[in-house]
Amino acid sequence: MYDMNHLKKLGTLSKNASEAMKAFQAFDSIALQEGVIPVKYKELMAVAVALTTQCPYCLEIHKKNAIKAGATQEELAEVTFVSAALRAGAAVVHGTHLMDE
């Protein structure tokens, strides 16, 4: 199911919903461009989110972009564990909903 070749179908998706795709691409481009937060950090954040949402397409794209922006293997490794800690933490604090007082 998760084959990077499916990304070639973005053109078809765009053809069938061109205005929405243009708006998404503009938003995506603006959100990830250099700003107060450097591109490298934005791409590392994108990797962290992709790890928690478990999107293989986002992982591949943003890993490449992070490396291109100067991210190291060590930074990618730390991002992995920050993502894991937050995901695990969310499960723990949601566990409070299961507790009777």
Rank of each mutant, 00 (worst) to 15 (best):
A46N: 03
L51K: 14
N16V: 00
M21F: 08
N5C: 04
V49D: 10
E78S: 04
C55M: 12
A26Q: 13
F27M: 12
D100A: 06
E74Y: 01
S29V: 01
K40A: 02
A90P: 03
E101V: 03
G11Y: 01
K40W: 03
E60Q: 13
L10E: 03
Q54V: 13
V39M: 12
A84S: 13
L59M: 15
A77C: 06
C58H: 08
E78A: 06
V39H: 05
K15C: 01
A20K: 04
D3A: 04
S18F: 08
G89H: 11
D100L: 01
G95M: 02
R87T: 09
I37C: 03
H6S: 07
K8R: 05
Y41F: 12
A91R: 12
G95C: 00
A71V: 02
F27Y: 14
V39W: 07
T80M: 15
L86M: 15
S83V: 11
C55G: 10
Q54Y: 15
P38I: 02
D3I: 03
T72A: 02
P56I: 09
L98T: 12
A31N: 06
A77L: 11
L13G: 00
M4L: 10
V49P: 12
V49Q: 08
E43M: 10
I61L: 15
S29R: 07
Y57L: 03
L7V: 05
K68Q: 15
S83L: 11
Q33H: 15
A77Q: 07
V82F: 08
G11E: 01
I37M: 04
K9C: 05
K42P: 01
E43F: 09
T53S: 15
G95Y: 04
A48N: 03
E75K: 09
R87D: 08
E78D: 08
V47F: 05
G70S: 08
M1P: 10
A50C: 06
L13D: 00
G95E: 00
G89D: 13
Y2L: 09
T96S: 10
Q33T: 13
L51P: 11
E75R: 07
K8E: 02
A77V: 07
E78H: 08
F81M: 14
N65A: 15
E78R: 05
A46K: 00
Q25P: 06
P38E: 10
A17Q: 12
A71H: 00
F24L: 13
N5D: 13
N5Y: 09
L76E: 12
E19K: 10
K68F: 13
A66I: 10
A66N: 11
A91T: 13
G35M: 00
T53A: 14
I30S: 06
I30P: 10
G95D: 00
